[in-house]
């Protein structure tokens, strides 16, 4: 029996765990020495799901050590909720197993698809925003929620084009998806900003169209200016325009929302990362940092190689 029957109102998002950062392996040695929240300066972590499926090494050990002291959220990139092929049963099975062991605060992924015909592009590809897609994604969200016995939290991706056949704006699509499936939302304000510049919509209109009662979390990150468009590079500080959107989102939600800073390339040392995260607390007090967006150092959206490299081969020996 479905735990989340269709057409039900979205479950209330869990209470905000506060301010967190994405867990990255380059910070493990530092976190070994500053394990507790009062030492690290963050309230919670978001772990990339796929980095811990089938993983029985040091990264998994760190994840579970951190879990003893922090809420952890599993954030996936390969669920491919919008793909026109059947869901990957092996992936879901392993995700459920990991969730059972880790007890994450929630599980999130993206409103996108990543491949078909068995091929994974490892990119968050845009969906045609049509009635057919909406029906399809609603059904799959419900399948996933039934299987995981919890609401799925879906993130708006950064987008570089729209399909000609689109019948919805993205915020309309998300609102309808929430209403019909009971899923919750991870609102990436950086992605809203990137997409608004690239596609030419008003980010205020996007925020106004979201079902804010379903917002479980938000993401912050720094994009890169390519001149003609923005790329979601996660490789630099959060610019003023994104901080403004963040302030507007939290103000509109009228409640604390779990806030997470993503940084995936040219990753700073952990204390510098925490300093950037702490700006979010100041923004909520009305102090918005004044920053220009940097011109691109990289044109790669959502870099991921840092998570598969050999840096742990040369990590400090464990005590």
């Amino acid at each position: 029996m479905s735990a989340f029957p269709s057409c039900s109102l979205p479950a209330t998002p869990p209470p905000s765990p506060g301010f967190g950062v994405g867990l990255r392996s380059c910070h493990f040695p530092w976190l070994e020495r500053h394990l507790l929240p009062q030492q690290s300066g963050v309230d919670w972590f978001e772990a990339i799901t796929e980095n811990y499926l089938d993983h029985y090494g040091y990264a998994r050990r760190m994840l579970f050590r951190l879990r003893e002291h922090y809420p952890i959220v599993l954030h996936g990139v390969s669920l491919s909720i919008g793909a026109s092929e059947p869901l990957d049963a092996a992936y879901l099975h392993k995700l459920r197993q990991l969730a059972s062991e880790l007890q994450p605060a929630w599980i999130s992924d993206h409103l996108c698809w990543t491949g078909m015909l068995g091929i994974n592009s490892h990119d968050l590809l845009p969906l045609p925003l049509t009635r057919e897609s909406l029906d399809h994604v609603c059904a799959r969200v419900q399948q996933v929620q039934d299987y995981l016995s919890r609401p799925l939290v879906l993130e708006n991706p950064s987008t570089y084009f729209c399909f000609q056949q689109n019948e919805y704006h993205e915020w309309e699509f998300l609102a309808e998806l929430v209403r019909r499936s009971g899923c919750q939302l991870l609102v990436d304000v950086n992605n809203i900003y990137v997409s608004s510049v690239n596609l030419g919509f008003d980010p205020q209109q996007y925020l106004a169209g979201l079902p804010l009662q379903a917002v479980a979390q938000c993401h912050l990150a720094g994009p890169s200016d390519m001149g003609t468009h923005l790329i979601d590079t996660h490789d630099q500080p959060v610019p003023t325009a994104v901080w403004r959107l963040y302030q507007q989102l939290i103000s509109a939600c009228e409640r604390p929302v779990a806030t997470l800073l993503e940084w995936d390339a040219r990753i700073p040392d952990f204390p510098e990362l925490v300093a950037e995260l702490n700006l979010a607390r100041e923004v909520l007090q009305g102090h918005i940092p004044q920053r220009e967006m940097a011109v691109a150092a990289s044109s790669l959206s959502t870099p991921v190689a840092a998570s598969v490299g050999r840096e742990l081969h040369i990590a400090e020996p464990l005590s």
Partner: peptide, 24 residues
């Protein structure tokens, strides 16, 4: 299939994904 604009053609927009796939 893809909406373009004066700033960025449809092919240029598609190329962001095409190049991103290889680079990543």
């Amino acid at each position: 299939r893809i909406q373009g604009s004066a700033a960025l053609s449809a092919a240029q927009r598609l190329a962001i994904y095409q190049e991103g796939y290889r680079l990543r």
